[in-house]
Design a binder for these strands. Structure first.
Lengths: 197, 197
DNA sequence: TCAGGCAGTTTAACACCGTTAACTGAGCTA
DNA sequence: TAGCTCAGTTAACGGTGTTAAACTGCCTGA
């Protein structure tokens, strides 16, 4: 009984240990130097063990990507409960997006195939991204009840500004301070949210 | 004499052949499957020959990146000669940016480290990017003579919207048609250019 | 004619990669 | 005790970037 209970738990621990290790290495050395063998070494197993938890490196990366979008979705839902005003909601969600990218750059990289992170699964086909998308589209709809097409365009605009500024801010870090980029980001996202009224 | 003249020319041909082959493979199979040996096979040489033209895969990618920015700079200069109105200039430059990304996705990928393309050289430290940046900043300045800081912010905004929409349009291709994305892009860039007046 | 040198090119090797098959050894059951 | 199961290992395959050593063929000087 003890063994039966400890086994699955330890298995789950190993699994999340693999994910955590992959992210740790990526954070320290970049995704291009994350390898199955390095992960295995870190969790004190041999390489083939990793394949008992993930069919390939690709699905391991996809899992991390999904984790990222899931995390964002939870944050967005939290904000939706916290605020009623759609403008406030959209602005706060934008800020969460920014903070997430800065705090977990290695996740943001694999979510968008940036800087050596490469996952072949198409981003937009995952449930988690669809959920995040429609969550934000609903917020936009709630104070601009337009056609589905118009909402999709506004969402595309919002996403583009947010993602574009985040990636360029990271790229230009060192040439333009993060604080300065963040100020422009805040201003732009506030302006966008206000413009919807 | 003939030999002395033909030798350097053939060397230059080999060099550009390497670059062309790398881009061809990247276009067909993605950057993650571009390898020195594949390139060497295609140009009918053995792998070490490639290293007589490029010190490493990294500088080969950087060369391609620089070529991309150089190409953009020439296009921007062409437009600057073609139009006087800063608003028109900025809009046309935005459109060139879009067309370039669609026509040469493999270059756009290596310029911004997207989708498996990974070059360790920092983008913003190259002369070519600096040149492109200040070219656009000058256009913005020419009808909004504000402080250097303000111009930099506006340029950061412009670049973010453009780059964000281009990358998301490519990512969402299949879920949202390119034509639809392009329409939103055109509208947004036009609105941005107009807003500067 | 032969030896030497030199440029261009290839082979072979190193250490790494993702991935899979075959093997090991310990614990449990019949 | 013999056999089975199963977690975990080693070893291998074909690939990667990169480098050193070896080779090939030609031109030159003796």
């Amino acid at each position: 009984m003890e063994v039966l209970e400890r086994k699955p738990r330890s298995r789950e621990q190993t699994r999340s240990g693999i994910i955590k290790t992959a992210k740790d290495i990526a954070r320290r050395e970049g995704w291009q130097s994350v390898s199955i063998r390095k992960i295995a070494d870190a969790i004190e197993y041999s390489a083939p063990i990793v394949y008992e938890y993930f069919d390939s490196k690709d699905v391991l990366l996809d899992e991390i990507r999904q984790e990222g979008f899931r995390h964002l979705r939870h944050e967005y839902e939290r904000i939706n409960k916290l605020y009623r005003d759609p403008e406030k909601r959209l602005y706060e969600i934008s800020m969460v997006q920014w903070e997430f990218a800065l705090q977990h750059p290695e996740m943001y990289q694999v979510m968008y195939n940036l800087d050596g992170a490469f996952c072949t699964m198409p981003v937009y086909e995952s449930e988690e991204t669809q959920a995040v998308s429609s969550l934000i589209q609903e917020i936009i709809f709630s104070f601009i009840p337009k056609s589905k097409q118009s909402i999709q365009r506004l969402f595309f605009e919002w996403w583009s500004i947010s993602h574009g500024m985040i990636t360029l801010a990271m790229m230009l870090r060192g040439h333009q301070s993060i604080e300065q980029s963040q100020q422009v980001y805040q201003e732009s996202m506030r302006r966008f949210a206000r413009s919807l009224k």
